[in-house]
Design a protein around this nucleic acid. Structure first.
Length: 429
DNA sequence: CCTCCACAGGAAGCGCAGGAGT
DNA sequence: ACTCCTGCGCTTCCTGTGGAGG
C-alpha cells in the first residue's frame, strides 16, 4: 500500500495521461483526485450557522418592522420592547442579528452611546449568567459566579446610568429561562428604566413556543410585548430562494445544481420549514461530495448527508449525556436485547441498579432516575407514556426511540461503560 | 363499590464549589 | 478568616392517581 502511493505521487502526471486514454489502472482515480482537488466550496463561512447574511430573502418586512421599532434608539430615546414568535429556523435570530449589525454600524459611525447585546437564554442557562452577559455587553465586568443576583442587577443598573448607555438586548429563546426560573428577572428588568433619563434597557424576546405567554405575569407580558412580530415557517419555495442565495456565495459556480437546492429545500420544508436544517443539509451534502472528490453535488450526496446529520445528532446527544443518564440508556438497551421492548420505570430502575453494581458505582435514587428519564424524553432519545395497570399501579412505559445499534456505537467509545454491553440483566434472563 | 398498587412528580432542603465583601 | 450569596446535582418527604381485582 505504502509503496504504491509513493510511486504514484512521484510519477503522477505521466500515469494520469496514460489513464485518460482509458484503461484499468486502479490508481487513476486517486491520482486524478489528488492533482485536480476539485473545489466545491469557495467560501465555507457562508454555510455556518452563525453567519449573518447580507440578504435575508422573504424577511424584508420583518427587518423593516424591527428597524422601525428600534429606530428611536438612534435619537437616544428608549425604543419599545418587542416580542418575537416563530418556530426554529424561521429567521428570528438572523433578522435580529442582521438589524443589530446594521444599527451597530450606524451607532459606531455617529459615536452614539447605544449598545446591543444578544443573549441566548438556553445557552446562558441561568438568570445569573443572563445578567452577567448584559453587564459584559456594556463593559461591566462580573465574575462567573459568587455574586448575589441582586448585586449583579445593581451593577448593571449602575453601569447603564454611569455610562449613560442605552442597551438594546435580545433574549433569544426566552421561554427556556422563564420555564426554569419564572418571570421574576423579566419583571425586574422591565422596571430597570424607572428613574433613568436618556439611558436604559430595551428588551427583545424571542420564543418558539406560541403558548409561552401563558407562563407570564400580565404585568411582564404587557411590558414585554409592547410590539409583536410573528415569523411564519418558510415554504419550500422560500427555502429555495434562501438556499440559492447562500449557494451562490458559498459554492463554485455549477457545483451545486438547482435540483439539489430544490431537493434540500423540499426535505427541510417537509420538516417545519426550518431554514437552518436546509442549510446544514446542503452544507453536509457538499462536504460529502468534496470528500469523494466529486465536482458536482448529486442527490446521493444529499441522501448520505441526511444520514450523517441524523446519526451525528444521536451520537452527539448520547455521548454528551451525564454518566447516570448513559447508565439508564444502557439499562434500557440491555432490556431491549432481552426482548423487553417497552419496560416500565420500576424495571428500568432495577436494571440500572444492577448495572451500577457491575461497575462499582453508587446508584442514584429512584426519584432522581425518574427525572433523568424525563430529561431523556425531552431530548427525544426515549419516549415515555403514562400507563395505568390497575391493581399493578401506575407507571411510565418507556420506549427507546433511538435504534439500539446507534446507542451501542456511542456507548462503545466509553471505556467505563463498554464492558456493560456484554452484561445480561436479571429481568432479561 | 372500594382498595390499593406502583409509581409520578412537586416541594423543600442539603452539601458542595466558587466567589465577593469585610 | 468569616459570612453570605449563587448554581447544581442530588435526596428526602410527600401527595396524587386510574383502574384491575377483591
Amino acid at each position: 500500500m505504502n509503496t504504491k502511493s509513493s510511486i504514484g505521487s512521484q510519477s503522477g502526471e505521466g500515469l494520469l495521461h496514460r489513464k485518460s486514454r482509458g484503461g484499468g489502472d486502479p490508481l487513476e482515480e486517486v491520482l486524478k483526485k489528488a492533482l485536480q482537488r476539485p473545489r466545491i466550496f469557495v467560501n465555507r463561512e457562508v454555510m455556518r450557522s452563525d453567519y449573518v447574511p447580507e440578504k435575508l430573502p422573504h424577511r424584508d418586512e420583518h427587518i423593516r418592522r424591527l428597524g422601525e421599532i428600534l429606530s428611536p434608539a438612534l435619537s437616544l430615546s428608549k425604543p419599545s420592547n418587542v416580542f418575537i414568535y416563530g418556530k426554529t429556523g424561521t429567521g428570528k435570530t438572523a433578522v435580529v442579528r442582521y438589524v443589530f449589525k446594521r444599527f451597530q454600524e450606524v451607532v459606531a459611525g455617529e459615536d452614539l452611546p447605544v449598545a446591543f447585546a444578544y443573549v441566548n437564554c438556553r445557552i446562558a442557562g441561568t438568570e445569573y449568567r443572563v445578567l452577567a452577559e448584559l453587564c459584559e455587553s456594556i463593559g461591566v465586568k462580573v465574575p462567573f459566579t459568587g455574586l448575589a443576583k441582586a448585586e449583579v442587577f445593581a451593577r448593571l443598573r449602575r453601569g447603564l446610568k454611569e455610562k449613560g448607555v442605552l442597551l438594546v438586548a435580545c433574549f433569544d429563546e426566552i421561554d427556556a429561562l422563564v420555564k426554569s426560573y419564572g418571570d421574576n428577572l423579566l419583571y425586574e428588568l422591565s422596571r430597570i428604566n424607572e428613574g433613568m433619563e436618556g439611558c436604559g434597557l430595551t428588551m427583545i424576546g424571542t420564543s418558539n413556543d406560541l403558548h409561552f405567554k401563558d407562563y407570564l405575569d400580565p404585568r411582564v407580558l404587557s411590558s414585554l410585548s409592547e410590539e409583536e412580530l410573528v415569523f411564519h415557517p418558510y415554504t419550500a419555495i422560500e427555502l429555495v430562494d434562501i438556499l440559492s442565495e447562500r449557494a451562490r456565495l458559498a459554492f463554485r459556480e455549477g457545483a451545486v445544481p438547482q435540483e439539489i437546492i430544490n431537493l434540500c429545500a423540499a426535505l427541510a420544508a417537509s420538516e417545519h420549514g426550518d431554514a437552518r436544517r436546509a442549510i446544514d443539509l446542503l452544507r453536509v451534502a457538499a462536504e460529502v461530495a468534496e470528500r469523494n472528490g466529486d465536482e458536482v453535488v448529486e442527490e446521493r450526496h444529499v441522501r448520505i448527508a441526511q444520514n450523517i446529520i441524523e446519526r451525528g445528532r444521536i451520537f452527539e446527544a448520547i455521548s454528551t449525556l451525564p454518566l447516570h443518564s448513559k447508565l439508564i440508556l444502557v439499562s434500557m438497551l440491555l432490556l431491549t436485547r432481552g426482548n423487553v421492548l417497552s419496560p416500565v420505570s420500576g424495571m428500568i430502575y432495577q436494571t440500572y441498579k444492577e448495572v451500577c453494581r457491575q461497575i462499582g458505582i453508587e446508584p442514584l435514587t429512584d426519584r432522581r432516575v425518574s427525572s433523568l428519564i424525563s430529561e431523556l424524553d425531552m431530548l427525544g432519545v426515549v419516549k415515555s407514556e403514562l400507563v395505568n395497570m390497575g391493581r399493578h399501579g401506575r407507571t411510565r412505559r418507556i420506549i427507546l426511540l433511538t435504534p439500539p445499534d446507534e446507542i451501542e456505537e456511542a456507548i462503545r467509545g466509553d471505556e467505563l461503560l463498554s464492558p456493560l454491553l456484554d452484561y445480561k440483566p436479571s429481568a432479561a434472563r
